[in-house]
Design a protein around this nucleic acid. Sequence first.
DNA 1: CCTGCAAACTTACGCGAGCAAGTGACCTGG
DNA 2: CCAGGTCACTTGCTCGCGTAAGTTTGCAGG
Lengths: 331, 331
Amino acid sequence: MSEATVRRRVTSTDVAREAGVSRATVTYVLNDTPGQTIPQSTRTRVLEAAARLGYRPNSAARTLASGRSRIVLLVLPDWPQEFSFRHFLDEASLALDESGYSLVTYTRHPGTRGRPLWEALNPDLVIGLVPFDPDDVASIRGCGVTRLFPDPDESDSADLSMAVSAGPELQVDHLIDRGHRRLVYATFKEPPPYSLVLARHRAACDRAYTRGLPPPDLERIDHQDGSTEEAIRRWRDMGITGVIAFNDIVAAVVVVAAATAGLRVPDDIAVIGHDDNQTAAMFVPQLSTIRFDPSTLGRDFANLALHKLEGRPWQNPDASTRVTLVRRRTT
Amino acid sequence: MSEATVRRRVTSTDVAREAGVSRATVTYVLNDTPGQTIPQSTRTRVLEAAARLGYRPNSAARTLASGRSRIVLLVLPDWPQEFSFRHFLDEASLALDESGYSLVTYTRHPGTRGRPLWEALNPDLVIGLVPFDPDDVASIRGCGVTRLFPDPDESDSADLSMAVSAGPELQVDHLIDRGHRRLVYATFKEPPPYSLVLARHRAACDRAYTRGLPPPDLERIDHQDGSTEEAIRRWRDMGITGVIAFNDIVAAVVVVAAATAGLRVPDDIAVIGHDDNQTAAMFVPQLSTIRFDPSTLGRDFANLALHKLEGRPWQNPDASTRVTLVRRRTT
DNA sequence: CCTGCAAACTTACGCGAGCAAGTGACCTGG
DNA sequence: CCAGGTCACTTGCTCGCGTAAGTTTGCAGG
């Protein structure tokens, strides 16, 4: 407790001296290294010394020596911050923490100049919610990261993407089941469609195809000018009656514009959102949308990471049990 | 380009061998170490060798040897829901990147168990958007981090908090200027008010005080049950005519509930949001709110960080030029 | 009484980079 | 012709930790 003249960081050497053992013993005790027999008395002596001095291992040194940083880097595409995403991250980082890993999130969009974060962090694993482009893969590999997901060399990309595609599939199914045959996919003009938009759109196209319909066009609307109303009239003239919205905000804009254009929702045109945003239930009319359980998805994610990191058993969970339809008043 | 038998990471030793110089020379060239005289010929030889081999310095080794990680950790009280926050982060990390630092964001809420991220990252600087609680300060210091902000020992907390308080101050001023004398501050019951909520509320209270009004109560509403309407009737009976909403979503809920309760907005009750959310302009009626320029704030933030890291000059920018009032139809 | 073996440690090396302190070679001024 | 100073490097130590390979002690079995 005495104030040292120079506030130097406590190292394992200090702990060793304090406990009256060698540095190696300290490491063995603190890391529970298997294959070492250490009596309880020594063990407690070391642990108490470490606690007394407030020892924190230097993560850089540990990473250098062991070759592992115990960091998982989650790369997010350009991403509107849905409220539920927080729960996803909470759950994922908690589950990873229990196994000694730290989760770091990194929002990266195509235009980014500058050094990517995986270069600064030496992560053991880099996970993208959507596939990486080839440049990024090369960059990640060049930093000595051997584990990444989705890994283009392993063709396992399907695993996590199911969590992305299940929602759009439900949207399409629901609209078809309500009798709609001609559909569009709507998103915002600004910001330009990023990878998550494209991934959801592709999933919707695939689903429409398997249900025997043509793939819905990707329509980019704007909520500033009047272009949305114009688009809606165009859709009506084309016989389109079902709108798959990228998210609830897009859905809200479409619904408002439909009213302005004199169309009745859902009779003339049905709209379904995605994410079950906080505002979705408050909107007038209340939005039909897709809800997913972020906590469970977070745990799924952590399990996948641990599978990649340590080869733990893993089976792809059934996404359909994680994602559900919420029908309200716009379909 | 030949496929090595074992894919080993390229080190500075490899570069040195390839360039025909010693390792020290490589370090000097790549780091532009001042005080070293290196002829252009050698310099290019080293740089070309590094490029040819695809050399990436090992950040753990560098951190260990130099004692600096070049990582800035930004601790957020809660996952940002505001769209504009992305621009803030983009701009901040870009500006930091130009000086060789990486920005890592970390969402930490009070209940979090598990190892905090500053322990795993060895950041050079930890910045919180709102003040840290004492436990966290101790934890951060215990990890060998000497620079943190706001630093309770330096009483400089005012600098960044102005970016937080300017919005609530504008909200209060606007309502007062519109003739409202009795105000409340509204936020959601779920999730429980976190530090950003409390910080904004405190700022509103301070402003009300300087304008000669009693501090507005912090009212926690719910958008699921009917409690909001009940609250609104209560407010009406108390003579409250102005509602300061924590953000635009809260404002929207209040507006909807006011309509349900039979009050006219803004005649019977005025509501002002915060953040100029994407939905704010689309809502019916369109929400009055607070807009701020996230890019400029991001650059301000980066400058503050560089000031803390390297003692660069810094003067507190005038927050009032970064934050503006957007009056629409709810005030 | 000696051998063998496990328990309970310690010694010593290496991870990859930064940096202080050398070390020749060359030049310049007196 | 030599002292002194730059240039252009290299040698060697260090950061804090993980871990393989010893080393000593105690005890059981033959």
